[in-house]
């Protein structure tokens, strides 16, 4: 059977939080049996937007990541449940049967994505159901419905919308090896940014060539500084070390080695004119 999937495009997510609020609006105080009982007033985040502040002033960006149950094809929670209360539908949706759940909380412990919440009032484990009560009526989940930039795309895995994103999608935490059905576009990878300036003239240097070499695998990237003397090198491999070469005639070139352990604003790279006569 066709599988249901969700792709979340972080390049479009502004962190507005509408998905989180809409999920609560749908589920707090409303039962959708057999799929789920109502969510408690507060404390559950079946989808939750987390902001990641990146870089240092003035090279700062924020990436927002909506986090939810990823409906694993290889779901640790299902294996951990001693009551066999967690099922996968034919369309891939993983759900916790409220009437079978005994509230032992082992699934919560098992979930690597911390996507399962415990309902103290109902004494059951709960999580995102992909709004199965809606999709069975041909609707999309509330989070996808409310997203003002369509950053959340939901549908059949072979739908045109999801197929178009296929080549860009990535798994959040592939090391868990759980075969998730919620995937991402634009997961943050470290950047190195800076501004190239000529301190003698007090001017920024545009069109300087920035060559970045990954010292672990020799991959090379080249960018130029813009009208503000700025450069951004994005999507670096985390914890790799990079040689950054800054060149522009008639300046002496500048070299630095950086570890991409976090997003880095290297600040001003000051070039001085080549003192050697260029005859």
């Amino acid at each position: 059977m066709t599988q249901k999937e969700m792709s979340i495009n972080l390049n479009e997510c502004t962190g507005c939080g509408l998905c989180q609020i809409a999920c609560k609006d749908e589920h707090v105080g409303n039962d959708y049996l057999p799929w789920t009982k109502s969510q408690p007033d507060t404390g559950h985040f079946w989808i939750k937007v987390v902001g990641q502040e990146r870089g240092q002033i003035p090279k700062v960006r924020v990436t927002y990541i909506p986090l939810a149950c990823v409906h694993c094809g290889n779901a640790p929670c299902m294996k951990a449940c001693p009551e066999n209360a967690i099922d996968r539908r034919e369309d891939g949706i993983v759900w916790i049967r409220p009437e079978k759940c005994t509230g032992c909380r082992l699934c919560q412990e098992a979930c690597p994505y911390n996507a399962i919440y415990f309902n103290e009032q109902s004494h059951i484990a709960q999580k995102c159901t992909f709004c199965v009560h809606r999709i069975d009526q041909g609707l999309v989940p509330r989070c996808a419905d409310v997203c003002p930039r369509d950053a959340i795309i939901f549908g059949d895995s072979d739908s045109p919308e999801l197929s178009a994103l296929r080549q860009h999608i990535e798994v959040l935490h592939p090391e868990y090896e759980t075969d998730p059905r919620v995937n991402y576009v634009g997961l943050p990878r470290p950047f190195i940014a800076g501004t190239v300036v000529d301190v003698e003239s007090g001017e920024v240097i545009s069109d300087a060539d920035i060559t970045v070499t990954d010292l672990f695998n020799d991959k090379e990237l080249t960018v130029s500084t813009d009208a503000f003397g700025d450069f951004w090198i994005t999507d670096l491999a985390r914890d790799h070390k990079y040689m950054v070469k800054v060149e522009k005639q008639p300046y002496e070139r500048s070299l630095l080695v950086l570890k991409a352990d976090q997003d880095k604003n290297v600040g001003e790279i000051r070039l001085t004119r080549d003192s050697a006569p260029s005859l």
């Binding site: 501004t195 007090g202 920024v204 545009s206 009208a227 503000f228 003397g229």
Partner: peptide, 22 residues
Amino acid sequence: TPQWAESITGVPAHTIKALARE
């Protein structure tokens, strides 16, 4: 001048000049 404004605004003079030209 951009140097004068740098001390007040905290924006580097070279950035002010680049913004002006852009």
